[in-house]
Simulated scan of single mutants.
Amino acid sequence: MRDLTLEERQELRRELSAVTAHWAQRLNDVDVDARRREDHQPSAAQRMRTHLARMTAGEQMRSLLADLVSANAEEAVQYGAGYPELGAAVGASRQAARKRWPNLSISKRRASEWKQPPGGIGWAGEHLGYPGTPGAA
């Protein structure tokens, strides 16, 4: 994966700004007819409400995006991603990814994939009585 270029970041910012403005209009109780009149100049109070509504919409988007990122992390793990890959995807370290998503089943899945050393568990299996080893009681 690659990072967004400066131009792509600007494009994404414009698109997110448009979505935020759209949802802010839905959240803001501004008179629709007043907005449609060309000669209408919004008051300072109306402008303030508009910006506060955009902030509200932006915070809701931030929360929803965090949920989407976490859901995608869970799905990536199902397809074999580990903490190093999750961290790289969000520009963080393996340790930061582990701290961000501590309850993912990465360690359980990875532990079940570990291979036994050549010859099985060897001496420990034989002398400590592990099931399935020659000489186990």
Rank of each mutant, 00 (worst) to 15 (best):
R2D: 02
R2G: 01
T5N: 00
E7T: 11
E7K: 10
E7L: 03
E11M: 06
R13I: 08
R14H: 11
E15T: 04
A18K: 01
A18F: 00
V19G: 06
T20A: 04
T20P: 00
T20E: 05
T20Q: 01
H22G: 02
W23A: 00
W23C: 06
W23L: 07
A24F: 00
Q25G: 10
L27Y: 13
D31H: 05
V32L: 11
A34V: 03
R35I: 11
E38H: 11
P42Y: 06
S43H: 01
A45V: 12
M48V: 08
M55R: 14
M55T: 12
E59D: 11
E59I: 06
A66P: 02
A71G: 07
E74L: 05
E74I: 03
V77T: 02
Q78R: 13
Q78E: 10
Y79E: 04
A81T: 07
Y83D: 03
P84M: 05
P84T: 01
L86M: 04
L86D: 05
V90M: 04
S93I: 08
R94N: 12
Q95C: 01
A96P: 03
N103S: 15
L104G: 02
S105H: 11
S105E: 08
I106M: 07
S107N: 14
S107C: 07
R110G: 05
R110H: 13
A111D: 13
E113K: 15
K115L: 15
Q116C: 12
G119H: 13
G122P: 15
W123R: 15
W123N: 15
A124L: 15
E126M: 14
P131A: 12
P131T: 10
T133M: 07
T133H: 15
P134A: 15
G135H: 10
G135C: 13
G135I: 13
A136H: 13
